[in-house]
């Protein structure tokens, strides 16, 4: 009886249910209201703190929740909509910085993935190259390469100091500021997971299908586009989805370290104690950018691979939700 029950309850939840989302939205709204009310007067926090201390004898140290560290939702909204006298705030200010970050993230995303697809195709036809480079790519894929950002920035500092770079306007445009290096960070982060996934996808074609096409003396071009690319696309999109938020992260992280524009720069300023409300706005924008990129990739996948989605739906019906998510998790 109990075992049967637990099996029933263990059925996974359908994520798209509007009621679930409504519950979540209500919880978030209530949380925001609570946050706004409790911080409307700084004394509230210390009153709660002393009440807990008096009743339980334990000091929860709620000083974290002071309005200067966790600004009220209304002051975050004000930072976003209204431009203060010093110009650090308002929609134009954030639009400018968002543009700087988004440009580097998008360009890095496109270049990194494009390069990875090109090299994966090269691997397919030049086997010796694959043998030499694939083990390195496999190793680098599982290292979170965002950690090498300080190295790249260090190289840029030196490059910017070179006389040859200072004299050449084009080279100075590339390496005199942070813009290029932010993009290169993204390219490096995005490159290896996509390379590995696409290279695997291009090779994981049905052998009977390949033999059949060979017997019809189909051209390599035809086989590439009609057989290999469709097989590789699901794996490629799995990599693109990971790359979507990774590209935003790469840009933000390099802006923390060294930049005077971008969302990461605003965040770093907030972390040091000045402009906490602006930091919150920047974090919300970053979050939305990462989600938007992810959803765009997801949407494109659904348009490009409708059969892929239907195959998944069929499998879900046949084998159950959990096994498919396991396969997807392995693929990504």
């Amino acid at each position: 009886m109990s075992a049967m029950n637990s099996h029933k309850q263990a059925k996974p939840v359908e994520p798209g249910r509007w009621r679930d989302w409504a519950v979540t939205a209500a919880a978030i709204t209530l949380g925001l209201l609570f946050w706004e009310l409790i911080l409307s007067n700084p004394d509230n926090v210390s009153a709660i703190n002393s009440a807990i201390r008096d009743t339980t004898g334990w000091n929860p140290r709620l000083r974290f929740f002071s309005p200067t560290m966790m600004p009220r939702p209304s002051s975050i909204a004000r930072a976003f909509f209204i431009t203060p006298n010093n110009g650090r705030g308002g929609m134009l200010f954030f639009a400018e910085h968002t543009q700087a970050s988004l440009f580097a993230a998008l360009l890095g995303f496109v270049l990194g993935n494009g390069l990875a697809i090109l090299i994966a195709t090269l691997f397919l036809y030049v086997k010796s190259l694959e043998r030499a480079l694939m083990p390195i790519a496999l190793a680098l894929r599982s290292i979170p390469l965002v950690a090498i950002t300080p190295l790249l920035l260090r190289i840029r500092f030196t490059l910017a100091d070179l006389p040859a770079v200072k004299e050449n306007p084009l080279l100075y445009l590339l390496f005199g500021t942070e813009n290029t290096i932010k993009m290169i960070v993204v390219v490096i982060i995005v490159f290896f997971p996509t390379l590995v996934n696409v290279a695997r996808g291009l090779e994981s074609v049905d052998l009977p299908a390949l033999e059949f096409l060979h017997s019809l003396s189909a051209s390599e071009w035809y086989i590439y586009w009609q057989v290999r690319v469709p097989t590789a696309l699901p794996l490629a999109f799995a990599a693109f989805k990971v790359a979507a938020s990774a590209s935003v992260l790469g840009v933000v992280v390099s802006e923390w370290l060294s930049s005077n524009q971008g969302l990461g720069y605003i965040m770093y300023q907030g972390g040091t104690g000045t402009g906490v409300a602006e930091m919150w706005v920047a974090m919300i924008i970053t979050t939305c950018l990462a989600l938007a990129l992810f959803w765009i990739v997801d949407l494109v996948e659904k348009i490009v691979l409708p059969w892929h989605q239907s195959v998944i739906a069929l499998k879900q019906a046949m084998e159950g939700f959990e096994r498919v998510t396991r396969i997807q998790a392995q693929a990504s």
Partner: peptide, 30 residues
């Protein structure tokens, strides 16, 4: 084991999973 926990936490988890969480560090510091 609990449908309620799944219902309230799952949508949040789905959103948070695709976020660059490391980017939240300035918030954690503040």
């Amino acid at each position: 084991y609990s449908r309620t926990v799944a219902r309230t936490v799952y949508p949040i988890a789905v959103i948070l999973r695709s976020l660059p969480l490391i980017a939240l560090m300035p918030f954690l510091v503040s």
